[in-house]
Design a protein around this nucleic acid. Structure first.
Lengths: 201, 201, 201, 201
DNA sequence: AACTAATCGAGACGGTACGTCCCGTCTTAGA
DNA sequence: TCTAAGACGGGACGTACCGTCTCGATTAGTT
């Protein structure tokens, strides 16, 4: 039995975590600050999440995730371009810092790394791959491409700029990415590329 | 006069930092551990570097940097491929963890971010771009490509896999990257791509 | 109407408090443990007592108090000795720890201090003083003794050993206490002692 | 090698602990407060002492202990009386609260209990017993008394009043204690008392 | 027998102190 | 004179327990 968890408090905690981390970055904010901002005891945070990383990860998933729906456009190849533009906009928003923070923290926290990969990255990759399949079905893309690899090709450069900071993340950059990609993958393009994503050296 | 500064100690510090961080990651290692491993007082570290990040950054630059020379091959486009293979090998070695660690730390340390960008990333990007120019000169690449953008396209996916962990970093992956790239940028390929790296939205 | 208050539960709470604190001491026991042991919600405890100290105090008063009746013996001076022996036995039982715990807690809790003094100590002192008066009436004690002071003299050393732990609390110790006392207070003993208990310096 | 401990800081910590605990009691003050008052990091406290209790115990021993020297008087029995008066004065000073606090804490902390007993109580008992022996040698006290027991008889009532609060601790109380004691132990007094302190029941 | 309303178990909550860890600075003893 | 060893101030961490608050299941008296 017992008193059920206060779902509003959870929202308040996640919102506080989201706001603070988006503004100042993961490392700069403390659990006490999150608790204070959410008007909550520290134990209410640690009762639900094992550590700061998990709170912020959940904030991303629950509060930001729903805002990142994929656009629906008749022509699938246009949809790819649109999705790249959305990613640019997302990275340029305050959430860019949030993603950077979590990705950084994940480098020293395997649990977080897995959560970030499996609960944030992979679902969105699936969305991208669904569009790619549709583009193939619509005859806009060669059918022999490796979906995983292709997704890396499209999004890797965006994350690279986000994390390293060489060059700004712009829609022009996304466009160039898209065009470079289409140049190599449009139906009729000659290519020796073969699926590699599951192969090891 | 007193004893002259011990240059051997600096090497020992950098080597200790390199070994420890490569093995366990930046966050898991403390400055005291580095000092102990180098058989050095903590002050000998802080006398020469402002903080832990700077030590590890210097360890990378001084001990690892020289090992990353660019291969010289007659045919420039082959050189690009070779360089991608070396990058794969590098990321798969213990240094992969070092790079991940520093890149992670750089997300919350602007000073380190700049150092990493300007002293590690940019010089290597210049090397890549030199090869690209040579390939253009040799007529193996279209002359209208944006060098910065192209470098992002080639290396972004590698860093993406290094940091996010979706998919393994293999030579097959590097090959696919290379082929996809050549498919879109070989002389005679139609493309609307134009330089974008300095433009803002 | 709803269910009437469960008086059985109160007993269970007090019994749980008594058992746990007697075994492990006040500080080692949490309110949650008492509630769990009594198979009762924490609110059922705080509904009836303001805090942990009050529960344990009441456990002492209601469950232990009735067991500490004064022995009735024709010769009052023998009764004093008997009572000292009972005190020794009491302190050596599990309740010794209970008394120590409460007395300890009372040092930082004035409310508990007063309760312990007024509801436990003072009534028992009254019992002792009644015996002393009877002994005077029976001509076994000098009539000019200060009853409060005398009670302190008889019981102070027992509490001292209980709390400080120099020396064991034995019946031989009680006997020595008694004899030393009688040596100084028997009728016919010369003494300049006068009532002092209410005087200040 | 290493930097030697800063003895001034230790003094500052002990002084802060002494002042704060004497004023507000052990339980009311926190380690952070002590650290703040001493202008010291919390780690400087925990580096030297395992917990708050140990700090306060050491404060008592190092700062108060030296102030509690035994008076030297030609006539030993007078010295006993004088010593009782000093004890009254001590308990009535701010240090009374300190002693109460530590004794209370010792009830749930066996390590502290032992320290308090062996490093505070026992040395002072030895002082008292030395005076008692001298009084015996001077023919002012019967030679067959049990020193341990006698010390309990003299000081037990004082601690009893300190901790329980029935009756004030006054010099008149000390006088009565002394006279009651002398009445039973002066040379020529009849008594069956025998050493008991080491005997068990 | 079904309904209704008080009561209770379970346990979440805000708060406060604890004792630990590591950073980057400072200090001393000894080589 | 320089450096290893390591103490130091500071500040975040994650844990424990207090006393309060809330929910849903249980039960007893009324219909």
């Amino acid at each position: 039995m017992g008193r059920p968890r206060n779902e509003e408090a959870d929202k308040a905690i996640l919102q506080a975590a989201l706001d603070l981390v988006s503004a100042d970055g993961y490392r700069a904010i403390t659990v006490d600050q999150i608790a204070a901002q959410a008007q909550v005891g520290k134990m209410s945070i640690y009762r639900r999440w094992p550590n700061k990383a998990a709170v912020v990860m959940d904030a991303l998933l629950e509060l930001v995730g729903p805002q990142t729906d994929f656009p629906s456009v008749p022509r699938a190849s246009e949809s790819i371009k649109l999705q790249l533009h959305l990613q640019v906009k997302f990275f340029r928003s305050g959430y860019g810092r949030l993603i950077r923070s979590l990705l950084a923290e994940a480098q020293s926290n395997e649990e977080l790394a897995e959560a970030f990969r499996e609960r944030w990255i992979v679902p969105r990759r699936r969305g991208v791959m669904a569009i790619l399949k549709k583009a193939i079905a619509q005859g806009q893309l060669r059918p022999d491409i490796d979906l995983e690899l292709t997704t890396d090709l499209l999004y890797g450069p965006l994350y690279y700029r986000l994390l390293i900071g060489t060059g700004t993340i712009t829609t022009a950059f996304a466009d160039a990415l898209y065009e470079q990609f289409m140049a190599g993958h449009q139906l009729g393009t000659s290519s020796r590329s073969r699926p590699v994503s599951q192969r090891e050296d």
